[in-house]
Amino acid sequence: MKEQLKNKSESPYEVQLGETFEGPMDLLLHLVKKNEVDIYDIPVAMIMEQYMEYLKLMRIMNIDVAGNFLVMAATLAQIKSRMLLPVDEEQEEDEEDPRMELVRPLEEYLQIKYAAEDLAVRNRLDWDVFTRNVSEDTEACEKQDQEFVNISLFELIDAFQKIVKRVSSKHFMDITVDTISVNARISEVADLLEQHDSVSFQELLEGQDTKGQLIVTFLAILEMAKSQIIRIMQHVESGIIRIFNG
């Protein structure tokens, strides 16, 4: 895959993750959740391996992996190695589980997530309850489909991986021809969204012939989400991911 991406580096394009998407804590939580493990008993080696997989994938896709992702990777590695050390029996009692270093921030972060969720379900002014005067905290009206929920970056990466796997490798013979830039793809997607209210993530990706094109499309989607041109939502029941006009 790396060779294929080399031609992309001729027109270097980077997606900066920044704050629009999630950070290392979200990735860690995503993995803990995905593997259904207890945060007080995290299988560090396994989680770390998967964590590194994600980082690798993000790198391949030229997503700028912020330094804090690496700090977390280093922390995981350190904890993993400390767990491999034989425990001195005399000290065993005051020796803390090295994983506590991970548990505390995770716990705190989880609390914040609960608190954020609590705020989200409160009766919001101008959404659930209204006063006689229109408050200023509004934006132009648009259709909001209640049956869709936002999707996290990592869920999106998972979906992307599945599609990449499904598309047969035979299609990836000719890699130098007709590479389209991310910006050009962005305007294509924008055009598409002008004609239709929304398109499915799968439709957008499966029409692509080469892996390069697939990645360009994926990067275009990320970039558009970041600049809030689009919203990426997942249908509650079917799990289908759709792209909406922002």
């Binding site: 969720e117 705020l119 919001r124 509004t138 934006e139 936002n150």
Partner: peptide, 20 residues
């Protein structure tokens, strides 16, 4: 209402929760 409330993204809600 012709207007709908400005959305608060998940990062915004998290940040807000921490501040609150």
């Amino acid at each position: 209402r012709l207007m709908k409330p400005a959305r608060l993204s998940r990062p915004a809600l998290e940040t807000l929760a921490i501040i609150a």
